[in-house]
Design a protein around this nucleic acid. Structure first.
Length: 423
RNA sequence: GUGGCCGUAGCUCAAUGGUAGAGUCCCAGAUUGUGAUUCUGGUUGUUGCGGGUUCGAGUCCCGUCGGUCACCCCA
């Protein structure tokens, strides 16, 4: 009995890691003034079919079926269509710009490999109703801080910036008609051999050399105002201009960007861009709002954390700081179990994560359990009741005190530096 | 959807075509109120599944399922 291919079980330790990512994402997004939203996991097929041009590739990856009411439905493969539907329906109820984020699971029927599964979690953020460079910078800086939150530095990742407008102007000056096809070719410029690229480009009157030259030049005039915003925030070192990025989705209209690990050993950590026409297209012109958005996937980010020692250490420390029990009540004399239970309840009422043996167990075993649970304190309840012993497990320091003095003792000791018991 | 590599205990892995093992983990115990180390004992396998070759298959062949990597595409 295994989960389906590309799907994951989340055992407690996996849930803890997932929680670490989700908590970090939420914390940073709220720091930027974004508010959380969500939509249904199951949507009408119509929603994806409507994006006929832009979503054509993704149609082949849908988990699609007919429900018991004969409706043609699909599991969501991304958030943008749902977001667009929701914005179009209630746009007037919200002050602009909308700064919305979500952490949701998505489904794509495709063959799995490193960094790609059939069910994955993605953080999404969209800034809707503001077409300015300031909005672009806000979105990209959010990406940077989302990654910095997990301990990554400018030496670990980089955001590559590009702009489809720069390309469209370039192609326009050369009277290229089929810009969509050419952008798709540019997207592959680093992956395909030069020969086959030239063969594809020649019908459009272009050569790889020309394109490479344009990429190398970098069109600084398109990016100067944006880069100024990064300078002002002290985040300039996190971004690079790279016109070879155009991204696959057809609905992007201007700025596009992707985040990569510096080793460039993995697929993109995050990606997004400006889609100023999508809402108008989907609403037949009734809602016309510029927008910029991006997604960060949990799988690639998780891989990079695993492979980056300082990020991994940061996660391990965060997880260790949240043990399943902070206090373990050791019942040394089972005839005092009743008193121990009252103490356990009092500790729990006070907010402490508290655990204790459900059965009569040897004291040594109880201490071992306490340590394995990651508890900071053990409280020994025995025949001296109402006198108890309070012990800090990491230092093995023990105090003997009346049980009603325990709250004070815990308050005093909880802020003490915790020594690393693993060494 | 196409192709390469891989599939043995919960985990990491052994086993010239000849009786399936080790470590680890987990459980119990080692003078009945203190954690480590150590020691003892114990559980777990239709060798992914199904065929074939052979006196005999974990091992060789075919198929299938699963994993992994690449293509494609993207998070």
């Amino acid at each position: 009995m295994r989960p389906l291919p590309g799907f994951r079980d989340f055992y407690p330790e996996d849930c803890a890691r997932r929680g670490y990512l989700l908590d970090g994402w939420r914390r940073v997004a709220r720091r930027y003034g974004f508010v959380e939203m969500d939509g249904p996991v199951l949507e009408s097929m119509e929603l994806y079919a409507k994006k006929n041009e832009s979503g054509a590739e993704i149609l082949g990856q849908l988990y699609q079926f007919t429900d018991r009411g004969e409706r043609d439905v699909a599991m969501r493969p991304e958030m943008t269509p749902t977001l667009a539907r929701m914005v179009i329906a209630k746009e007037r109820a919200y002050r602009k710009p909308l700064k919305w984020f979500s952490t949701a699971n998505f489904f794509r029927y495709e063959r799995q490999q490193k960094g790609r599964l059939r069910e994955f979690i993605q953080f999404n953020a969209d800034l809707i109703g503001d077409g300015s460079t300031a909005a672009d910078a806000e979105a990209i800086c959010l990406v940077i801080d989302l990654l910095r939150e997990f301990g990554f530095t400018k030496d670990d990742f980089v955001i590559r910036l590009s702009d489809r407008k720069a390309w469209l102007d370039f192609l326009g000056a050369r009277a290229v008609a089929d810009t969509k096809t050419v952008l798709a070719i540019i997207d592959k410029i680093e992956r395909e051999p030069e020969e086959s690229l030239n063969a594809k480009l020649s019908p459009h009157g272009l050569t790889v050399a020309e394109l490479r030259e344009f990429i190398a030049a970098g069109s600084p005039e398109y990016f100067a105002p944006l880069l100024e915003q990064f300078e002002a925030r002290g985040l300039r070192d996190f971004v690079e201009i790279d016109l070879s990025i155009v991204r696959g989705l057809a609905y992007y209209t201007g700025l596009v960007f992707e985040a990569f690990d510096r080793g460039k050993s993995m697929r993109a950590l995050a990606g997004g861009g400006r889609y100023d026409d999508l809402l108008a297209d989907l609403s037949d012109g009734t809602v016309n709002l510029p927008a910029i958005g991006f997604g960060v996937g949990d799988v690639v980010l998780g891989n990079l954390i695993e492979e980056t020692p300082h990020a991994f250490a940061k996660m391990a420390a965060a997880l260790a700081a949240s043990p399943s029990a902070e206090i373990y009540v050791v019942i040394a004399d089972d005839s005092r179990r009743r008193e121990a239970l009252s103490l356990v309840q009092a500790l729990r009422d006070a907010g402490w994560r508290t655990d204790f043996p459900l059965d009569s167990v040897k004291v040594g075993k109880q201490f071992q359990t306490a340590e394995q649970l990651g508890a900071r304190f053990a409280i020994v309840v025995g025949n001296e009741w109402p006198i108890v012993k309070a012990k800090t497990l990491a230092t093995r320091a023990e105090a003997t005190l009346a049980q009603d003095a325990l709250a004070g003792w815990l308050a005093k000791n909880k802020d003490c530096q915790q020594t690393d018991s693993s060494s």
